[in-house]
Design a protein around this nucleic acid. Structure first.
Lengths: 128, 128, 128, 128
DNA sequence: GTGGTCTAGACCACA
DNA sequence: GTGGTCTAGACCACG
């Protein structure tokens, strides 16, 4: 599995699942149409509560990243628009760095670095 | 005042205060040395509790954005380094957009737009 | 329990908790991984307020001595670096003794004595 | 003057005065018998409140570092024993470092360094 | 008047 | 059950 749950993290488990699924999609490891493990499967694999996984999947569906089907389980779908709060969160993050006197160039470099990694992994996944 | 509190938001009030103060610093509205309203003052102005404001100010101080003084209140101070989780949060945000099939160029454009606004406002504040 | 709260002390209660937990870690009574009592539990045990304990735990977490988990409570974790003011506080303390005409040798002996006790207790805890 | 007041510090002003007078004594800059500036003088020099200086002097007298006389002002006297809380504060400080996995040798080295500086300055003052 | 500390009691998110 | 957040009201230290 591609998931890495840190039970000690300050980030809620369902958010860890959500974020990592999204990163998996971004990096091309989970292209559209891919089936995600069933809720029971995933919960069993990591020894976490069904409700926790359910909450993550439900959130991912509401955000348009996956589609939940009876029996078939969860399927990745790439569609939808950026969430309402995305821009706000980005602005908060940019402000945090800018207020620390980090230059715009340096901040953009950080962004580019991350995006570059996604692109590189994407390419790799497609070729394999 | 520069603050805009949404009592119904899912984001904790003390985080709203923190984020908006940081944005104020980033945009130059709150240059180093500026005095922030006292804890009691701000609490009264927005009809929120003293402890909530205190928590926000305490957090801002620990993160190096302001300095709390016994008698003078809170004063803006730019120093310190980026928080440990800044890069993680940025990566999660970038992934979210990339997974939505938004191109790298478009994402970077979003960042640049925000940073550009900060720079423009900064310039404006300095000239006035 | 290992704690000893003096309600009448000039030292704030949350600082008493903090210092004693740190001493517990130093002496090996609280090795990494040990679970601390929950906030509510500790507050109830000593008849103090939940928020006071919360403040102590929050401080200990920020200083890297413990880790707060949603469900499991507080767990000891040794990491992080010395606080910024440690050296200043040490210097003030050394000056106080030196100004009383206590010899350097005697002062160092005090330090060694304390450190020796920590080491001895540490050894004891490990062997048991 | 030998004093350096930081109005922004988290440490109360009267404590800054106290600590620096003690350091002055420890380093030999203020040998026994030296007259300290009058309360009014010191308050005027630093633009601080009379009560604040008074509080510092009062504390220093109660701790046995100086002697307050009518008209004559404050005179340094080296005598008295270590304060009741000195050992406790030292123990807390040692614990803080030891709990961070700093070795006893390294901690002692810190202490020796500070004491060595006092001794060196002391010698210098006596020779001059 | 400022921030710092403590108490009392409440609701929510997480698992 | 855990910690996280918010409210309300109190007293103290500092200057």
């Amino acid at each position: 599995m591609f998931l890495m749950i840190e039970i000690d993290s300050d980030k809620p488990i369902y958010m860890q699942i959500r974020d990592q699924v999204i990163e998996g999609i971004a990096s091309g490891q989970l292209p559209a149409g891919t089936s995600l493990p069933s809720i029971r499967q995933l919960a069993a694999d990591f020894g976490i509560n069904l409700h926790t996984v359910n909450k993550a999947y439900d959130l991912l569906e509401r955000e348009g990243f996956i589609q939940l089907r009876r029996k078939t389980g969860a399927v990745v779908q790439v569609s939808g628009t950026l969430s309402d709060t995305w821009n706000e969160r980005l602005q908060a993050l940019m402000a945090e760095a800018y207020a620390k006197d980090v230059s715009s160039a340096e901040i953009l470099q950080h962004c580019q670095l991350i995006l570059g990694e996604f692109a590189a992994q994407h390419k790799l996944s497609n070729n394999s």
